[in-house]
Simulated assay, not measured.
Amino acid sequence: MTEYVGYVLLLLCALQVKHLFADFFLQTPKMLSGRCAYAHMGRAQHAGIHVIGSALVYLLFGAQLAFILVLGVLEWVVHFHIDFGKARFSERKKLHPQQAMFWQAMGSDQALHQLTYIAMAWAWVKYAAA
Rank of each mutant, 00 (worst) to 15 (best):
V57A: 05
Q64F: 12
L56T: 05
Q64V: 01
H81T: 07
I52E: 04
F67R: 07
K86T: 02
F84S: 05
G85I: 09
A66M: 05
W76L: 11
R88M: 04
F61P: 08
L71I: 15
W76F: 15
K93Q: 15
A63N: 09
L59T: 08
H79G: 07
A66T: 05
L74E: 13
K86W: 03
H79N: 06
A63R: 14
L74S: 14
E75Q: 10
Q64I: 01
R92H: 09
Q64T: 00
K94D: 11
I68E: 01
L69C: 12
V73Y: 12
W76I: 10
I52C: 10
I52N: 03
S54V: 14
A66Q: 06
H81S: 12
A63K: 10
L69D: 01
D83V: 02
E75D: 08
K94T: 08
L56W: 13
H81M: 11
E75A: 08
V70F: 10
E91Y: 10
L65Q: 02
D83I: 02
A55P: 08
Y58V: 12
R92N: 15
E91V: 07
H79Y: 02
L69V: 07
L59V: 03
D83Y: 10
I82R: 02
A87Q: 10
H79D: 03
L59I: 01
A87N: 01
L69A: 04
A55N: 05
V57K: 02
K94Y: 03
G62F: 00
V78C: 11
L74V: 14
R88H: 05
I82H: 00
E91T: 12
V77I: 15
I52Y: 04
W76S: 07
Y58N: 10
V70L: 08
S90A: 13
V78S: 07
Y58W: 13
E75C: 06
L59S: 09
F89P: 05
L71N: 15
R92L: 14
L65F: 11
K94I: 00
S90Q: 08
G62A: 00
F67M: 03
E91K: 13
V57W: 04
F67G: 10
A63H: 09
K94A: 11
